[in-house]
């Protein structure tokens, strides 16, 4: 581990180039909530395995595995999701399957929000992906809906809409309306399922982007948390009675995770946290409190994905039933 005051250490991604140091305050914060500090801080300076998802709109896992076998390409199928794979081969972007959209290069943790909503998606007719770009989750949601029903895929940032559009085209998604507006201005609807994969401080992605540690500061976390509280409240308001919302982020910060869910529970009476289970994937409970703040007892039913548990990025998920 390299810390702020420590000497430069070898960077496994680029030998000879020093690893960006993990800020002392970052270590101090998360040492209090993680189960194994050595394993956690060590893995943060190693690269995350390359992963992809089979796009069932265009192919299936068996066919893709047969094709990859014919290339002599190594891969590993995840026990917790039959369409999720990792590979040591960094050139899968130059495979026929990538060209046709039979596979989609996607982080494993990014596959979790649609996966935990799979049962609901099979019968859903109206779905909102509130922060959709660049479209990894939207394409997966569409595949789980068999390209039927309607997905409203929204992103407030126009510069990201083109990537969203390109990825939906590549994967053959037909059932989507792309909208470009602030979620707060979204007209009243009753969606069966809502996804709020909120913009965040992205601490959990530091294994592939260690610039996170250069710009990291707690003021940014606090600023994000204010915006995320507005997003989760609006997402809940757009949910039909009986509907389910997944709130997720790729950060470790409790202020952007459990505190945001706690805000929803305190401001919307009908909101209930539903325990999420992902058989085959090691998960941890939501934290009960952080730095003097105590959260509603039901936030323990949110789940945290710590990088050292499954060799992934870091992630947070909350299932909210209306």
């Amino acid at each position: 581990m390299s810390v702020e005051s420590g000497a430069d250490t070898a960077n496994p991604r680029n030998p000879g180039k020093p690893t960006r140091p993990i800020p002392k305050r970052f270590i101090e914060r998360y040492s209090r909530v993680v189960d194994d500090t050595d394993a956690f801080f060590s893995i943060l300076t190693t690269p995350v395995p390359k992963s992809f998802r089979v796009n069932t709109i265009k192919s299936d896992a068996k066919t893709v595995m047969e094709r990859f076998d014919s290339y002599g390409m190594s891969y590993r199928q995840m026990g917790w999701y039959e369409d999720a794979f990792t590979t040591d081969n960094l050139d899968i972007g130059f495979s026929l399957e990538h060209f046709t959209g039979a596979i989609y290069i996607q982080e494993l943790t990014s596959m979790l929000p649609p996966l935990v909503m799979r049962k609901e998606l099979e019968s859903a007719s109206l779905v909102l992906d509130g922060c959709a770009a660049p479209g990894s989750k939207t394409t997966q949601i569409a595949a789980m809906m068999d390209n039927l029903g309607v997905i409203f895929a929204n992103d407030s940032d126009y510069s990201r809409i083109r990537a969203l559009k390109f990825n939906l085209e590549k994967t053959g998604v037909l059932n989507t309306v792309i909208t470009n507006m602030g979620l707060q201005k979204y007209p009243s609807r009753q969606f069966d399922c809502v996804f709020i994969d909120a913009p965040c401080s992205s601490e959990g992605t530091c294994r592939k982007n260690d610039k996170i540690f250069f710009t990291w500061d707690e003021g940014y976390i606090a600023k994000n948390a204010e915006m995320q509280k507005k997003l989760i409240l609006k997402g809940f308001d757009l949910l039909a009675p009986g509907g389910m919302m997944i709130y997720s982020t790729c950060t470790f910060a409790p202020e952007e995770n459990e505190a945001v869910v706690d805000c929803l529970l305190s401001q919307r009476e009908g909101a209930k946290i539903e325990r999420i289970e992902i058989p085959g994937l090691k998960t941890a409970n939501g934290v009960a409190g952080f730095e003097g703040a105590e959260y509603d007892s039901s936030v323990k039913d949110c789940i945290r994905i710590w990088p050292h548990h499954n060799d992934t990025d870091g992630f947070f998920l909350a299932g909210v039933r209306k």
């Binding site: 309607v150 037909l174 309306v177």
Partner: peptide, 22 residues
Amino acid sequence: YLGPRSDRADMNGMRVATVGLM
């Protein structure tokens, strides 16, 4: 463009960037 059925996709009041696939 081929997209979701228009009688099921109420776009009223939304700023739509595009629908379905060209």
